[in-house]
């Protein structure tokens, strides 16, 4: 059974326990051993990177250094954490001056960053270490061609030389559930979550653009692999109803929720009622 250092970050456990539980359930069913990391906290997000680059490096290098003690790769369900960890990992591997400075600080805790464990996104582990075939075997209740639009999220895809993530991975993971991937023009575009603190109106417009593009493409729901993207696309639909009088009715599901459903798990097990835009109608239709 493959074992991983599970790095939750702060957003998933606080805002999306449904993401957390569905990931754990899916992992368990597929024989993935996720061990919560001890003594770690938040990644700081791009906001910390913006005001305090060195602090951000230290916090994330520390997480990676702790993981190095057990030697298992670090797995996270959050694009924000993934982006931070990947970027810091990549940067420190390629910059010995900063690596030395960071290690001087980590030294006080008896830690050292060498870069030997890799930060990974949970879905990439599913795809690479478990494999589409093994997943297909567990699909007992295929989603029967329902159209799903994928929002990958900026920090999963870019910068590609840092994140090393191929979007086709998520496409295949969606298809293996029996769903169809609905392509839409704005698939690369940001959901707007990051600009919320400085310009909320702009954040709303970005979400709206994205939702419009998805709706027009004919998707029935959206899947995301990040709490921030999920929050933005889900919650803003409620706001758009009042501010623009627009109704999108596009349920936003975290990918493990979709896989869990296809694997026959119940809606309650994966906390589906916590998703703001109700997902039940479609699922009722599906399971007929």
């Amino acid at each position: 059974m493959p074992t991983y250092n599970l790095y939750m970050g702060c957003s998933v456990p606080a805002n999306y326990p449904n993401y957390e539980i569905s990931m754990l359930k899916v992992a368990e069913a597929l024989g993935i051993d996720l061990v919560y990391m001890e003594g770690v906290g938040c990644c700081g997000s791009p906001n910390l990177r913006a005001i305090d680059y060195f602090g951000w490096l230290l916090v994330n290098a520390r997480t990676l250094a702790i993981a190095e003690k057990s030697g298992h790769d670090v797995v996270t369900p959050c694009n924000g954490c993934f982006g931070s960890l990947k970027d810091v990992h990549h940067f420190l591997l390629h910059n010995s001056e900063y690596r030395t400075r960071v290690n001087e600080e980590l030294n006080s805790e008896g830690l050292e960053f060498t870069g030997r464990v890799r930060p990974r996104h949970f879905i990439e582990v599913l795809y690479t270490d478990i494999g589409i075939d093994a997943i297909r075997e567990k699909v007992t209740r295929p989603l029967d061609g329902v159209g799903i639009a994928i929002h990958y999220g900026c920090h999963l895809l870019r910068p590609a030389d840092v994140t090393e993530f191929d979007p086709a991975i998520l496409d295949e993971l969606v298809r293996v559930t029996g769903a169809t991937v609905v392509e839409y023009p704005l698939w690369k575009q940001c959901c707007g979550a990051t600009v919320l603190p400085v310009n909320e109106a702009l954040a709303v417009r970005l979400a709206r653009d994205k939702l419009k593009s998805i709706k027009e493409a004919g998707a029935s729901f959206i899947t995301v692999v990040c709490p921030a993207c999920g929050n933005q696309l889900d919650l803003q639909q409620l706001g758009l109803k009042t501010s623009y009088g627009e109704v999108y009715d596009l349920p936003v599901l975290l990918y493990p929720q979709i896989l869990a459903l296809a694997m026959g798990m119940s809606e309650d097990e994966i906390g589906l009622e916590m998703n703001r835009v109700p997902a039940q109608p479609i699922l009722e239709h599906l399971t007929g």
Binding site: M8, G39, V40, G41, F54, V59, R62, E105
Partner: peptide, 17 residues
Amino acid sequence: PGLDPEPMKAILHGTRT
């Protein structure tokens, strides 16, 4: 499980934040 916010606080006290 495992969450510990203290180290980050300590780190950021010593940096620009």
